[in-house]
């Protein structure tokens, strides 16, 4: 099972600008997705959501094609949507629905027979710790619980391709860990595509990552392959707090922590000679993200 994106592009008319020039949301993307968890990283406006919508068959590409096991998804139609589970970034719900009603509604839209739907809903409500709130209206749930309902609906039809756009936003650390474990278990023999700004979520579970910038794929690879390019560029130094202002304009700071003795521990991207007594640090995916997207 594989998803192949061949020279996929999506252009929009930029109505905000005079003359309506074309805005390239996605530009000539080539990607080959195989079973496992794929992380899609990129700054806001890099084209991640547009790309995911095209992978789900919601938007038609302006150019190129997306294939599922070698067949164009526009030809597959219903068959392709049968094997997809999608959680959009802006996850909505009708206000009158309870959790159970909502899942039953989505199950009906996914064409799942009644008995199978009932069994699956019960299983998901238990796994996602939503058993106690099944009769409660979604509008009255906390943000994290709403997100879990969203994840539940994506898993209803046991999809072979799971597309999750910012799935962990609003979840507390415990919920994020549980979600990561659920996904890791789910991802055997399936393709899971996650886009997120919470880089550690992807770092722990994604076998491979794709980094997007300005609508194009900059790099793909495992976490180790990607972070190796900034090996020797991440450092940590302890500086007096009064020098912080000076160093902020000199180096790209990844993280700063105020120590008890009044000094500041800086983690930064740069050269060893930038700050005296700086010690090299093993890089992580978040460091790479800031290296590639310095303005964020």
């Amino acid at each position: 099972m594989e998803i192949t994106l061949e020279h996929v592009s999506k252009y929009f008319k930029d109505k905000a600008r005079k003359g309506s020039p074309v805005k390239k949301a996605v530009d000539d993307v080539n990607l080959h997705l195989t079973p496992g968890v794929w992380g899609l990283l990129g700054a806001n406006g890099s084209g991640k959501t547009t790309l995911m919508r095209m992978v789900c068959g919601i938007m038609k590409p302006t150019a190129g094609r997306i294939c599922y096991d070698g067949v164009d998804i526009s030809q597959l139609g219903d068959f392709y949507r049968e094997v997809i589970g999608y959680l959009p970034q802006e996850f909505g719900f009708y206000p009158e629905f309870t959790v159970q009603q909502y899942l039953e509604y989505i199950a009906a839209l996914k064409g799942i027979p009644d008995t199978q739907a009932k069994h699956k809903i019960d299983e998901l409500l238990t796994r996602l710790s939503l058993e106690d709130v099944r009769k409660k209206k979604i509008i009255k749930l906390s943000g994290g619980m709403k997100r879990r309902v969203g994840i539940g609906q994506a898993l209803l039809n046991d999809p072979e391709l799971l597309v999750l756009d910012e799935p962990t936003s609003g979840l507390d650390p415990g919920e994020r860990v549980r979600f990561r474990n659920l996904l890791s278990e789910f991802a055997q023999d399936r393709i899971v595509l996650i886009s997120t700004h919470i880089v550690p979520d992807v770092e722990y579970i994604a076998a491979r990552n794709a980094i997007m910038k300005n609508g194009t794929i900059l790099q793909t690879g495992t976490t180790q392959e990607l972070v190796s390019q900034i090996h020797g560029k991440v450092f940590q130094a302890i500086i007096p707090s009064q020098e912080l202002g000076m160093w902020e304009s000199e180096v790209q700071i990844i993280n700063l922590r105020n120590e008890e003795d009044g000094s500041v521990c800086l983690r930064y991207l740069g050269r060893p000679s930038d700050i005296p007594n700086a010690a090299p640090q093993p890089p992580c995916l978040e460091d790479l993200y800031l290296y590639l997207f310095p303005k964020s």
Binding site: R53, I58, D78, R81, G92, P95
Partner: peptide, 20 residues
């Protein structure tokens, strides 16, 4: 309603899609 409550995108990705 689907647009107002941001359900259109999700419904469109299902088997019966927005059409059904």
């Amino acid at each position: 309603r689907p647009t107002r409550y941001k359900m259109a995108e999700l419904e469109q990705s299902t088997y019966f899609s927005v059409r059904g």
